[in-house]
Amino acid sequence: MPRQQIHTEHAPAAIGPYSQAVRAGNTVYCSGQIPLDPATGALVEGDIAVQARRAFDNLKAVCEAGGGGFGDVVRLGLYLTDLAQFAAVNAVMAEYFSAPYPARSTVEVPALPKGAVFEVDAVMVLD
């Protein structure tokens, strides 16, 4: 099955040897997005809600570049440096997704690239 690299200028460029997303068949695998401003590459300043919104906005841009949207997301991976922020992230996620919600895992991690406090990745299936 051929793979297609997905790229958009509306999300931060990869900061390592990986693609923003890769499409294989009707499935799009989106790399993790941290709260970087796509124009500057700098981490946005603010609390977990501000950072989560920026990361979700970045992910949305990648999904759209891949030919879909958040309604096509079947799985999310959330990574937080502090699980005490779980409720705040859930509130932000509810601004972007509606039922039926994607399957999801949430993991506390000791650190994220560039000092971010939140990262999100996704798998999208296109009809």
Rank of each mutant, 00 (worst) to 15 (best):
A103R: 15
D57G: 04
A91I: 01
C30H: 14
G115K: 11
L83S: 04
P35G: 09
L80W: 09
L76G: 05
V117N: 15
F97H: 10
Y79T: 00
N90F: 06
G69H: 04
L43M: 10
G69W: 10
L83E: 06
A49N: 12
A87V: 04
Q51P: 10
L78H: 15
E95I: 02
I48H: 04
V73G: 05
A55P: 06
G71V: 00
Y79G: 00
I34C: 01
G32E: 15
L59A: 03
A84D: 14
S105N: 15
M93P: 00
G77I: 00
I6P: 07
A65L: 02
P35S: 04
Y101T: 06
A122R: 11
A55F: 08
L76Q: 06
A88C: 07
T27Y: 02
Y101N: 06
L36Y: 09
P17E: 11
Y29E: 12
Y18V: 00
C30S: 08
Y29S: 14
V22S: 05
A84N: 10
E108V: 03
E64M: 04
P102N: 13
L43Q: 03
A99W: 12
K114C: 04
Q4S: 09
R75D: 14
Y96C: 05
P12L: 00
G46V: 00
N90Q: 13
S31Q: 07
L126N: 06
G66D: 06
G16R: 02
G66K: 11
L43W: 07
P110V: 03
V22T: 14
